[in-house]
Write a protein that binds this DNA or RNA. Structure first.
Lengths: 206, 206
DNA sequence: TGATTTCACTACGGTCACGTATCGAAACTA
DNA sequence: TAGTTTCGATACGTGACCGTAGTGAAATCA
């Protein structure tokens, strides 16, 4: 069982307003440096190559500096995945086509170019084996999906789609080309593919 | 560098018709038992848990029996992936809708229920890091895609789809719900979802 | 029968990563 | 100044796994 983020207790629990703990304070920058290094290592080496030593070397810190903040490799891995997937805001442009293009294009760029996207295969593999990582991944995906589903629902309300349209199916169809090309067939993908996918789907349900 | 299948040299090179090597012959059943165990271990434990000891234990054989047939863990892993993905035949029913439903439903059952499908996340994660596994995965996916693309081309010739339809896009759209649900959102999927996806796509391009 | 090969099992050396401990220096409190 | 905590660096014990080697038994050929 991996602990549920009970990290950094010493740094937060004993802090009373006005009084500080003795000793050298922690370097606040180290947290971000470590997190960025962890994301880079996971993206470059996969889950098998995600070692604490590698993260420490890439971050330029000692291992103790990592273990002072995270209790184990598993916890660092989980938080790395948690934080590497920041939200994209709901575009809500008034046009369903534009909303879907923006959402899907944003996902495409994330998966194709960002460290978060490059670490997704590793996360999926971990999720297939470890329930906690699976929960993390599922929650994140559901959150992202709900964004797109709401855009589709707005399109239905505006009459841009037939009222019997299944929003979940539309979203899953849209994710297909991005997902398949970046992770399976390793074929090139860009905005034009996304636009073609959106238009193909809207042509059927519009 | 992982060797390109130079395995089992002793068992094949010295065999002349009519003459057999001395000594106890290899147990032919052991090959399949090991392969099945390897597939099961990869599916259950992921690439990180894919150890020769685990495969040997699951197969009920000694490690030497494995190393007599495969030169290394990497080679066994590669062949496990190679063989765990048998072809499905081209349906060619005369109806594009029926062809696509059969192809996609077959893929869905493979990914959802078979050992080959359960090991796909592990393979994708390995492919993201190791070029040789990436090549193996890409080749397999391209082969499968070409089946579906040919079905789409037949549909275009028969006039079931507009002539300007992009076959690759149709195939990638179709794969979307299957991959997203089985590997990312972990939502249930069955034949009805596949049928709805096929109909949604055909409605746009028909 | 004797030689040879494979069998399951066990043990071994080597390597690698985890998590801990220690070191001297630095930064802060009392 | 004395005490405490963090810093980067390094070393250590532990355990897991790889790949090899050895054991006695079983199966086959000459």
């Amino acid at each position: 069982m991996i602990g549920h983020m009970p990290r950094d207790v010493a740094a937060t629990s004993r802090v009373r307003p006005g009084s500080r703990r003795p000793g050298r304070p922690r370097d606040a920058r180290a947290d971000d440096v470590i997190r960025e290094a962890a994301a880079a290592v996971l993206a470059e080496c996969g889950p098998g190559g995600f070692t604490v030593d590698a993260v420490a070397a890439k971050a330029g810190v000692g291992k103790a500096t990592i273990y002072r903040r995270w209790s184990s490799r598993a916890e660092l891995l989980l938080e790395t995945v948690h934080l590497a997937t920041p939200d994209i805001e709901d575009p809500d442009t008034g046009s369903l086509r534009e909303d879907l293009i923006q959402l899907t294009t944003g996902m495409m760029f994330k998966m194709r170019d960002s460290a978060a996207g490059r670490m997704l295969p590793a996360v999926m593999a971990e999720a297939a084996v470890h329930p906690e990582m699976r929960e993390t991944l599922t929650r994140f995906v559901q959150h992202r999906r709900s964004r797109a589903i709401q855009a589709v629902l707005r399109g239905i309300e505006r009459g841009e789609l037939r009222p019997d349209t299944n929003p979940e199916l539309v979203v899953d169809l849209l994710a297909g080309p991005v997902f398949v090309r970046t992770m399976l067939s390793h074929q090139p993908i860009d905005e034009s593919v996304v636009e073609a996918a959106v238009d193909a789907i809207l042509a059927g349900a519009g």
